[in-house]
Design a protein around this nucleic acid. Structure first.
Lengths: 196, 196
DNA sequence: AGAATAATTGCGCAGTGGGCAATATTGCTC
DNA sequence: GAGCAATATTGCCCACTGCGCAATTATTCT
């Protein structure tokens, strides 16, 4: 059994992904609050009850994609060469990130993020960000000498994620006119100050 | 009728405040998710249905206080003398803010913010912050020459509110050992870099 | 194969948000 | 003051939600 992860796990993950995608599809199609959990479950081929076993609500299901992306981002930061500055590592990871976001999903992103005007979604999204901010701060902290002030990583992570958020918002509001990487760079430069 | 604001408005505001306080009281008493809207409405002397006319949910009602505080903060920033730097104005406003928060509500804050561990509350809180970030950015923008880059206020506001958030979290996690103003200053210094 | 473990499902229930229409309250004009 | 328009409150109702519980089904292990 060379499968590092059992069939059970893989199937579960596949289902989770399917539910996520069903939520996404139905949302761009009908609008977030005209989609019932039942409809999503139906589209994903599971029962309403099972939906609750995977996600606590529609919001989580819809944002699952983004959460994965940011989780990847954190992992990337953690794996950057140790000699890099923290801020440099963050920027590098971000570049990698922007590349993977850009190519396929332009209008996809458009409608998705537009649906994200919804208060309930915005809230959940920011809560995710906050949770991952901790992880990001840890990843940053693990690459500095322990003599450094312990608040530095927290501040760095927060500044960085705020930049990301602002850049995304601007990108959307400019109707995806520019390359994501360009917008992100602009914001990061503005935020950068003395972090490098 | 010298009342700049009619009796109607004032009464409405009083009710809103009453509902907010009832929510707060019941929450510290029984825990957030053991409090029903009905109980709150009851305690505030209104019907369950009327509660919905004031707030969209328990979270909003509970966070109404904080929202007011930040709204005040924004107003204060707007009213700072025009010759001040943006960042200086923010710091000054913050000092004023911290003073008003500190004196009465120490354990109050403790239990309140502790209740804010609740995911649903955290989410709504952050959404509020995001909404007010726009206003704050505007307030900042209105005090600079229009030649400046337009993203600067956005970044400033975000950095500032992130600092506030981090400081609050640290303050809580240190069990209110230090003065709020002290913690806030520490974080702001760390974030400050070149903003002044 | 058969037992152990874990996932899916149906059922039920208390709670919720909000539309709608009836009712009560407030503000304004005479 | 009285009468009227504007606005706030309430009750009723219903679709939707999250979750506990127990039965059923699928998977993994020995």
């Amino acid at each position: 059994m060379e499968s590092s992860v059992g069939l059970r796990e893989r199937k579960k993950e596949a289902t989770r992904q399917a539910v996520h995608e069903a939520t996404l599809r139905l949302t761009v199609e009908h609008g977030f609050d005209h989609v019932t959990v039942e409809a999503v479950a139906d589209a994903a081929g599971i029962s309403r009850r099972t939906f609750s076993n995977y996600f606590t609500g529609k919001e989580d299901a819809l944002l699952h994609g983004e959460e994965q992306q940011i989780r990847d981002l954190v992992r990337t930061v953690r794996d950057r060469p140790a000699e890099e500055t923290a801020w440099a590592a963050l920027r590098a990871a971000m570049t990698q990130f922007a590349e993977r976001v850009a190519p396929p999903e332009r209008e996809w992103a458009l409608r998705t993020r537009l649906a994200m005007q919804h208060p309930s979604l915005l809230a959940r999204q920011l809560a995710n960000h906050a949770a991952l901010e901790r992880d990001l701060a840890e990843a940053v902290a693990s690459r500095r000498s322990p003599s450094q002030k312990s608040v530095r990583p927290l501040v760095l992570a927060a500044a960085f994620l705020s930049s990301l958020r602002i850049a995304m918002r601007m990108w959307i509001e400019e109707d995806l006119a520019r390359e994501p990487a360009e917008v992100i760079d602009e914001i990061l430069d503005e935020m950068a100050c003395r972090f490098d």
